[in-house]
């Protein structure tokens, strides 16, 4: 009895990492070229943007919130940075700075809607999502932003994406590691350090587990919740900027999948190391897991249209890991 219990503990704690290791071994044997630096970098690059968004949504999950607007914030940042450079003809610095500020502001509005106006988090951020999806189309009358486009007032936009901006999405360190991957790793480390090692992160976890208790212990619950949404909005904007830099134009239709992929990565992260709760390390691993799986299957010539199905299956399995197997009093069970 004792032994089987510890075996189960082991499975809960390391099951997901073991599964990932098994997957890597399986693909390296079956898919030629999977175990190469290029393939590794490709995987990282494919998950960099969703990973960054997922890290943001993790911070809202920590305070028992949720942010459905991240995908829309990312595409808004994409459109805004393009608009700043192409129409207003400002520098890359302004494109990045204004986009990140916009993300933080949207997060602040989300936070205020949730804590001051008591709108349930899912509804508030869903509303914000619609609002942004609409708002980003208004200045260009629904068209994509690119050099030479005609503006509503009849003039032609002459600005261009600056070289330094495009570097954010395209430059490779030592001709191998893209900058976006560096951003992902830096964001993961930053969010992890913030959540795990600082008192602010600790209080945010306390709020997520029992907000009433945190409040009676003197924590300013509202302020931390707003902060969480601001982190989420800023991360989403960063993801959008990187996407714009990679695409080189302000495409209205890009970034459709960002929300669902990011949320999936964050939820898969619950299962990593048996955490049973949102955590930055798990989120990064979750994003990586999805990346590895899709890359491997692609190299094995699995058709592209099976991708969403596979992501969904992974998510369901991870959720079972978190909630059924561990049987602990995780967030979802309480």
């Amino acid at each position: 009895m004792q032994k089987s219990a510890t075996l189960l503990d082991f499975a809960i704690k390391y099951g997901f990492l073991a599964l990932m290791a098994g997957l890597v071994i399986f693909f390296s044997v079956t898919a030629e070229g999977f175990m190469s630096p290029f393939s590794a970098v490709f995987i990282l690059q494919s998950v960099a943007i969703t990973g960054i968004l997922a890290l943001g949504v993790t911070s809202t999950l920590v305070v028992d919130g949720f942010d459905l607007s991240i995908g829309a914030v990312a595409t808004s940042a994409l459109m805004l940075s393009a608009y700043v450079m192409v129409v207003w003809e400002l520098s890359a610095f302004w494109a990045v700075a204004l986009s990140l500020t916009m993300g933080a502001m949207v997060g602040a509005v989300n936070g205020v809607l949730v804590v001051k106006f008591k709108v349930p988090d899912l509804l508030a951020t869903l509303g914000m999502m619609f609002l942004l999806l609409g708002a980003q189309r208004i200045p260009t009358e629904g068209r994509s932003v690119s050099t030479g486009m005609a503006l509503p007032d009849g003039t032609i936009a002459n600005g261009t994406f600056s070289e330094s901006f495009l570097m954010l999405g395209r430059y490779r360190i030592a001709d191998l590691v893209p900058l976006s991957v560096v951003f992902l790793i830096a964001a993961a480390v930053l969010i992890w350090v913030f959540l795990e090692l600082t008192r602010h992160g600790r209080l945010m976890y306390a709020i997520g587990s029992n907000a009433q208790a945190a409040s009676l212990a003197g924590t300013n619950v509202n302020r931390y919740k707003i902060l969480a949404y601001m982190i989420s909005g800023t991360m989403a904007a960063l993801g959008g900027v990187l996407l714009a830099a990679r695409l080189g134009r302000g495409d209205v239709a890009s970034g459709n999948n960002l929300l669902l992929d990011a949320v999936a990565a964050a939820l898969i992260g619950f299962a990593v190391l048996g955490a049973g709760k949102p955590n930055a390390f798990g989120t990064a691993i979750g994003a990586l897991f999805v990346g590895i799986l899709l890359q491997g299957l692609t190299m094995l010539n699995a058709p592209y249209y099976t991708q969403d199905f596979i992501k969904g299956a992974v998510l369901v399995v991870a959720l079972v890991f978190t909630f059924a197997l561990s049987g602990r009093t995780g967030r979802g069970k309480a």
């Binding site: 976890y205 306390a206 587990s209 029992n210 212990a217 709760k277």
Partner: peptide, 22 residues
């Protein structure tokens, strides 16, 4: 309802109001 942070261990429950001192 008002005090126990269920996800936390004993240590974190004890230090909750005074994280600043640590």
């Amino acid at each position: 309802v008002n005090a126990v942070v269920k996800d936390f261990d004993i240590t974190r429950n004890i230090t909750l109001p005074f994280t600043k001192r640590h």
